[in-house]
């Protein structure tokens, strides 16, 4: 296997390791629910439904297994003029968003994140394809980062 992309040198700021808990909870609950449905369908003798949900359960398990690696892959850099975000090990994705293009920044907290004191920052530009969410930020850090980025976006505001 060829080496992974490493397009930008420099320090990536990583997300909290506690995010593993959030992702585990999501993947594991998916696996458990899918497994229950699969077993129920098997008992009722609906073969194809059982098989489909068994596959979903296995996907959930794999997703849970690679959750730690996935969480380690999240990273971001605040460069002079743009925010750089990375995610993914198998499917790598790097996105650069100029500060002036950020239309709004959401802070979201799911139930598990809230229990662990984490937030995620969602960035919205005029392009739906941008699709950047930084998960697993401690609440204080998320709010500070949001305020800082909103400030930066305001000073560098450009048209559409």
């Amino acid at each position: 296997m060829a080496e992974r992309l490493e397009p930008v040198p420099g320090d990536w700021r990583r997300v909290s390791p506690k995010q593993v808990g959030v992702e585990l909870a999501g993947s594991a609950s998916m696996a458990v629910i899918a497994a229950i449905v699969a077993i129920a369908a098997f008992v009722l003798g609906i073969g194809f439904l059982s098989a489909a949900f068994a596959v979903a359960a296995v996907i959930g398990l794999i997703s849970a297994a690679i959750a730690p690696g996935r969480v380690r892959s999240y990273g971001y850099q605040l460069r002079d003029d743009d925010l750089l975000f990375r995610r993914g090990l198998l499917y790598q994705r790097f996105v650069a968003i100029p500060y002036g293009r950020m239309q709004l920044i959401d802070i979201n907290r799911g139930p598990v994140s809230r229990a662990l004191g984490l937030s995620e920052l969602k960035f919205v530009t005029a392009a739906a394809a941008t699709n950047v969410t930084i998960p697993g930020l401690p609440e204080q850090e998320a709010e500070a980062l949001r305020d800082r980025l909103v400030g930066l976006a305001e000073t560098r505001r450009v048209g559409l």
Partner: peptide, 25 residues
């Protein structure tokens, strides 16, 4: 609006990558 660099397992094996330019829908 933003730029993305992407690479999946297939492109990695072939030492290829994709670049997406993000514009309004």
């Amino acid at each position: 609006q933003s730029v993305a660099l992407v690479q999946g397992p297939l492109r990695r094996r072939l030492r290829l990558a994709g670049v997406h330019a993000h514009t309004v829908a």
